[in-house]
Design a protein around this nucleic acid. Structure first.
Lengths: 202, 202
DNA sequence: CGGAAATCTTGACGCCGTCAAGATGTTGTC
DNA sequence: GACAACATCTTGACGGCGTCAAGATTTCCG
């Protein structure tokens, strides 16, 4: 889409969105600043008015990924306000669903492509908020005896590890065809979650 | 190290080792075919006699990472032949230890940097062998009532997810300082494993 | 021994991230 | 309303990158 004026108006967000689209179409390897600029209809060096370097754009795209996840988690918490088990399952599934729906965006967000995360405070903040949401779900589950008692942040790390690991394994194709023929990914995920819960959930 | 003859002799392995060293020193972003070639003392296009493209070299480096893990797992199985719980813990820890000791090599091996894995059969074979080792440990644990009964490959996916996820979270810095001050990573890992075992292990 | 095959070098191409210099538009101040 | 300061964007350049083609060198095998 061409722009009317010399100035774009909202180039920063346009670059982030263009980046997400390129990730979806061409994967992590296909993401270049020049292509992102081209897609947004500006010259190849224009992004440097908004991002100090490529890592900064990647950090912004990652932050957007975390924001997307965070908002879905908050929706789920609201939707199943009185059912912590359901919150746990649906949050886990939304995580896996993100990985399947937008693999490259998921990878760049959650697979440590960002090198110096400390230099990107909004990224750290967004990931912290997401983790805090999980802690809240864990605490609700503990209150109902669904999850083992103990420090909620520690249990949350276990749960998050389980789900993150499962999503990663699926993306890497490490889940065998043999297994995939027998049951769906959602069933496998729920099975895995039931390994760490005190009582069965579904 | 200079070489005596026009032909290198074992350039293929030299390139893989050079790649692993560069990963250790400069991270994933610093890995280029030209630097690898330079480190091995050959011209910039020499690698193309042994690898079809950069992805093929990355696949070889990843395969080497899986081989390293596989050999350690087999050592652990032998060392604790009559103690499945110990096998489980030490295998999990060797996985996390790999991530901490050589983060870039770990990432490139286990974090889906390889795009078209089907085109690299030795990589697939090595990852399959590693997974099979885990399945054997799981079955031994199930026989002793340490892990829940059920399809061993399915339970193995749960265990592997847990450990892989934990290692990834640690690498990404998602484990809070607050938590790290209270206990060691090994303690956290053992806590997580105990979430999925029927009886306490240590 | 001689030619085929494997291995390595050289040189080139286009794409990339990044920087410097300058053009263009916007905003705040008197 | 003019104009200076500023933010934004363009143009052009640089070295490094992955990759390919052509040719040089060495090894292998009939």
């Amino acid at each position: 889409m061409p722009r009317k004026s010399y100035h774009h108006g909202d180039l920063k967000n346009a670059l982030i969105q263009a980046g997400i689209q390129i990730l979806a179409k061409e994967g992590v390897a296909g993401l270049s600043l020049r292509k992102v600029a081209g897609k947004a209809g500006v010259s190849h060096a224009a992004p440097y008015a908004h991002f100090t370097d490529k890592q900064a754009l990647i950090a912004a795209i990652s932050t957007e990924g975390y924001r997307r996840l965070y908002e879905r988690i908050e929706d789920i918490i609201r939707q199943y306000a009185d059912d912590p088990s359901k919150q746990l399952i649906e949050t886990a599934w939304t995580y896996v669903d993100f990985a399947l729906t937008d693999p490259a965006h998921f990878k760049i967000t959650f697979s440590g492509v960002i090198e110096q995360e400390k230099e990107h405070p909004t990224f750290v903040e967004m990931s912290q908020k997401s983790f805090d949401s999980v802690v809240r779900i864990v605490e609700a589950c503990q209150a109902q005896g669904v999850l083992e008692a103990g420090p909620s942040d520690l249990v949350a790390v276990s749960v998050w590890s389980q789900v993150h690991g499962f999503a990663s394994l699926v993306l890497e194709g490490q889940v065998s065809h043999n297994l995939l023929d027998r049951m769906s990914l959602r069933e496998m995920l729920i099975f895995s979650l039931n390994q760490i819960t005190k009582v069965a959930i579904a």
